Amino acid sequence: MRLSSFDVYPKTLSEFRQRTLTGGIVSILTIVLVLLLTCMELVDFVQVKTVEHLYVDTSRGSPPMRININISFPALPCSVISIDTLDLSGTRPDETAMIIEKTRLDAGGRTIPSPAAQGSQVPGGRPPERRLLFDGGGGPTAAAAGRAGAQGGGGATDRKPNGLRDLGHLAGRGDILLSALLSELLPNVFEDTEAIAELRTHLGEGCHIEGSITVQKVAGNFHFALQKADHHVLMTVFGQKESLNVSHVIHSISFGDVYPEMVNPLDDSRRILTNSTGFVQYHLKVVPTLYEPWHGQPLLTNQFSYTELFRTTQELDKFPAVYFHYEFSPIMAKSTQTRRSYSSFLTGLCAIVGGVVTVAGMLDSFLHRLTRVLGTTPK
């Protein structure tokens, strides 16, 4: 009896209880509403949410960053495309830091199977050697002179015949250094017939480039350009710079590892040039990101945003190219996966049951009093 005196829920005798139709309806609705809200609370509890935070990046001595590349050039053969990177300090990555694979594509975008190493060639290697077309007496052959004149370079041959004869005599001895010097000073008297014939066999093909480049975490750029040492071959085959179409499809570009639900704005983007070709530049703002999954180790990676700029070859007087300039933001993003705690879940359940039952009791009491006043209390 002493313990029962603390009961704050006094009971009434069953003889004094009255069940009504409105009370039954309210009770059924109460049970349905409690079950519905409980299911919603359970779904919200098991769902993993991502919370974003921004703060100043104070990290020092960041490790090197890997740039993942997957891009296609439907109008350029693989043999004329080179990829290179350069940061603000003037540092270029060595060959071990650049893992690039090239795959030839036909006009329909399908892969061309080839046993040659061109499909997996790492750009930046030595260009094909060129032959200086001199006859046995040290002078240029008639065929070479005719080709040079047709290409607009015959004037230099006519002005200094003796010098060319002497240089040709030295070049015939196998002086590699002198041949390289002549290639820079007099490019029109050089002709790589094998490279020209090989490039003509690949006209109409495309190229798919995929791989990664490991760079220091310093602002810089990586770009897809035409082989500088092969400009003479390019002009012989294509005729003019406007014929070098740098239309491209960016399948994916990322800086570091990709985590679930990460959005890279350049993925599956197309830049098709129909009326003119030129210099395409992408300016990327890279944001260091710390991703903390619900289960697993934290991942340090990067997100980015970009702007785009296009200039024609007539505006810049340059060979067409595709440049990606990147710089790092001083703000670091933190993406954390989280879930509600058990205490919060239990508190929500108690609030649902208690609140719904209380409101339903008030509603039932109001309806019961109303029916009594109207004199239509249901039996």
Rank of each mutant, 00 (worst) to 15 (best):
N70C: 02
S72Q: 06
F73G: 08
P77K: 03
S79Y: 12
V80D: 11
V80T: 14
S82A: 15
I83T: 03
G90K: 01
G90T: 00
D94T: 14
E95M: 02
I99H: 11
K102A: 05
T103L: 12
D106Q: 13
A107Y: 03
G108N: 14
R110F: 15
I112P: 10
Q118F: 10
G119P: 09
G119A: 05
G124C: 01
P127A: 12
R130V: 12
F134V: 03
F134A: 08
G137L: 11
P140R: 10
P140M: 11
A143C: 03
A144W: 01
A145M: 10
A145L: 12
G146A: 13
G146R: 09
G149W: 14
G155M: 13
T157E: 13
R159I: 14
P161T: 01
N162V: 11
N162R: 15
G163C: 11
G168L: 15
G168T: 15
L170W: 15
G172E: 13
R173S: 06
R173D: 01
I176A: 15
L181I: 06
L182V: 04
E184K: 10
L186Q: 05
V189G: 03
D192H: 08
T193D: 12
A197D: 13
E198Y: 02
L199I: 09
G204P: 08
G204V: 06
E205Y: 10
C207W: 06
I209M: 06
S212A: 07
S212I: 05
V215A: 04
